[in-house]
Design a protein around this nucleic acid. Sequence first.
DNA 1: AATGAATGAGGGTTCATTCAT
DNA 2: AATGAATGAACCCTCATTCAT
Lengths: 198, 198, 198, 198
Amino acid sequence: MPEDRDDAPLARPAHLRPDALANRRRVLAAAARQLAGPEGLAMNALAREAGVGVGTVYRHFPTRQVLLEALGAEGLEALVVAAERAAEDERPGGALADLLRQGLRRQLTDPALAAVLAEPDATCADTAALLDRLRVGLDAVLARERAAGLARDDVDADDVRRLLCGLARAVGAGPGRASPSARYVDVVLQGLRRPPAP
Amino acid sequence: MPEDRDDAPLARPAHLRPDALANRRRVLAAAARQLAGPEGLAMNALAREAGVGVGTVYRHFPTRQVLLEALGAEGLEALVVAAERAAEDERPGGALADLLRQGLRRQLTDPALAAVLAEPDATCADTAALLDRLRVGLDAVLARERAAGLARDDVDADDVRRLLCGLARAVGAGPGRASPSARYVDVVLQGLRRPPAP
Amino acid sequence: MPEDRDDAPLARPAHLRPDALANRRRVLAAAARQLAGPEGLAMNALAREAGVGVGTVYRHFPTRQVLLEALGAEGLEALVVAAERAAEDERPGGALADLLRQGLRRQLTDPALAAVLAEPDATCADTAALLDRLRVGLDAVLARERAAGLARDDVDADDVRRLLCGLARAVGAGPGRASPSARYVDVVLQGLRRPPAP
Amino acid sequence: MPEDRDDAPLARPAHLRPDALANRRRVLAAAARQLAGPEGLAMNALAREAGVGVGTVYRHFPTRQVLLEALGAEGLEALVVAAERAAEDERPGGALADLLRQGLRRQLTDPALAAVLAEPDATCADTAALLDRLRVGLDAVLARERAAGLARDDVDADDVRRLLCGLARAVGAGPGRASPSARYVDVVLQGLRRPPAP
DNA sequence: AATGAATGAGGGTTCATTCAT
DNA sequence: AATGAATGAACCCTCATTCAT
């Protein structure tokens, strides 16, 4: 069940001077911190927290949306890679379960991923591409589960993405992050099985 | 399947001069309208829309947060009433299904309800009381379903509330409000059944 | 040569609480001061100078353009009144000369008037109305001068307005405010006479 | 009536490596284009439009003000050359008329020229020198017109410069750029003639 | 010389909330 | 009670200018 691969590129700026790259990373790190807190994501505050000028933030991320997507991209990429591996993997079942678990866990620690996953109309081409790869991967996984009689016919990759968002919300809507997660994933997994012919 | 009862008291201010009550209602109605639109909920705009001064809004709702909660409480009350009826009702199954459907539908048209439902630590005592009644009602319903072998043992009323929040999020995370709703409710309902002994 | 009438209403806000009116006046006064200086007209700075919050400035003048017009309105009204009197006056010549002189003098001490005069597409209805009255008055004056053989046929009220703007610019484009004014007005006046048949 | 001579040196930097000179010219050209548009003149945008880095712009023009003046100097030089030719020319009348017409036309298409002409205290020595040459040329022209009884005694070269600024303003203060221009020039020309002894 | 990343003062605007009328 | 004027912190964003590479 190999799921992480955090040596994946943090972001995709073609070629950047080393100092600029450092700044970019500092901004992303600060943004992640801010987003984790209750303060939202104000550009000026972010710049201060990152120790750079506002202008620098805007140079790297012309829009808050772009920033959010860049922020979510890291986690999204990891999830995509996991989905693609699961799609290629020939093992029988359990792939979907792993993906749901991972997708949920990542959202809980990464609000930007949760945001990107919940807003399917990406602004950046990179994000759109990742979401597309996720869709393809999930569809492949679903196809295999369906073939094994283990998944409903009326649920596609986009439904899985949306249910994943829902899972994160359900967990977030109350105390305890760990304990309910497994149960909620269970509920959705069981719900995704082909219903017994009544 | 009687679920609505919109003649329920809009809010619970002890005793109010009739004109004050009318104002209160106008403000709540205007707030619901504004919140439905894309403009968010600005207190000054709200006052103008309601045809009263800002001061009047603040007299009734000392804080924006209080207003939002009062707004959500309206919808919440309807849901609570439905849950209490379902709890008293002696009919066999289907009660939980009805409640999920109604809870989802209400959230989709009433963002304030969605917010209140997702934030279980209510600021106002009234809201807290409603949430409590909801819990009691849902637990009764769950107990019956469980007794009939139709519900998992490891899921309680608060889980249902949280899954309801998740459902709203899943529906909101993509295009189409109607079509996926039924399927997603189905998934969760099937997921809530007692799992077949493996 | 009666030209001023500075007891004219400073601005035209229908009915205003006395304190609000006082604020309005303070803002206008501060704006006049700022505009006279070299600092332009920044809303925040203006608010500070006027001793009110920014919000108050925006409440009274939703747009910088509105503020400018309100500012220029005072001087414009005086000019309009002068033009209307000149139009009714039955005396032979000299009316146009007086108007040019007064229009120039006012612009030199009131940059807002210069701005309003130079931008004939007024945003506020009040300003538009004043500009209209100015046009009508000037046309009447021109008609009389023309009838007396003292003005060109190919020049109308709007040309006079524009030449007035030009005069202010010419005076402003060099040192000395008083000395050249009279000469430049002379040049334009002589230029406005019906040219001798060649 | 030969007025233009646009092969005049674009700018006067002592000795410049050919590539540096090319850059300088590109920047000036881009600046002229930007200034003509509605976007104002932002240094970064200018650099991009010129295809150079901001640093390069600043190497050539240490200040925005310097750049604007250099830009205006270009057009100013053409006007100066015209004035000097008119001063040397022995033809009877019409020289002043031509100069006014040309000066106005250039200002209307070249806001930087209008600015330089209106601000007689030039920052750069080059510009100051050009303004000086303009003054000398215009004075010579005026002297000749005066000698022929065609110009007032109380108007000098600086007055002509200032009236030229006024003309540009008058034309700019309303719709229609072409039609009023000729008339306004006419007015000023007639106004500049020696007034008939009353 | 050229480049373009970084800076941060500064201008614009909104809006929850208070309080004089 | 109701009103709506006032407040000012907080955001947003731009852009002239500097400086490390």
